[in-house]
Design a protein around this nucleic acid. Sequence first.
DNA 1: GAAATCGTCAACCGATTGGTTAAATATCCC
DNA 2: GGGATATTTAACCAATCGGTTGACGATTTC
Lengths: 92, 92
Amino acid sequence: MTMLLEDDMAVTDVAEPFEMSLAAISKHLSILTRAGLISQEKRGRVKWCKLEPDAMRDASVWMQGFGQFEPVNLDAFERFLAAELADPSKTS
Amino acid sequence: MTMLLEDDMAVTDVAEPFEMSLAAISKHLSILTRAGLISQEKRGRVKWCKLEPDAMRDASVWMQGFGQFEPVNLDAFERFLAAELADPSKTS
DNA sequence: GAAATCGTCAACCGATTGGTTAAATATCCC
DNA sequence: GGGATATTTAACCAATCGGTTGACGATTTC
């Protein structure tokens, strides 16, 4: 899969690579916004969309511990992520 | 959310806490099996289900890197998980 | 061998999803 | 003001989803 939202993008920009109506894309983006996966800010007539990586990351944290009998230490996991995001060379 | 599948469970066991027909649960479990999230093995007349944590973990790995401009090092992430699962005291 | 248990299959159903078009609402630009 | 651009809304539609019930095959138990 390719990147969905790079930096801030207008609804029209997001829609461009898809062979789908703008209205459909607009609906999708509303749903993603309701879900907290992106945020939208209207400036003038264009509505700028940007990723909210925290939401996806939260889901990731939830999933990665799923089904573990001895649950993975989520604090340690989050520290790993924080370290990785701050300085990728540390964890590599 | 509570645990869905503890150790190995028969289809009937999985269905027990839900007020839903056995047929419906059976369908759900087939779907989960097709998706690789659980596996099913039929022994006699009972079909034993068990979680396949790797599938969920793979999804988690995919998600956790989503939307990162400077992508998180997935190898490091997987090493973290391996270490955590092998010996939780190491990462805590 | 008859009855009970385990699970699936087939047919069916209403609700939801995921898209379409067309019209409407703002905003920007000349 | 008027035309172009950006986005949302409303009505609509076919397809899919998520459940039901009842019949069925296979297995175990008595």
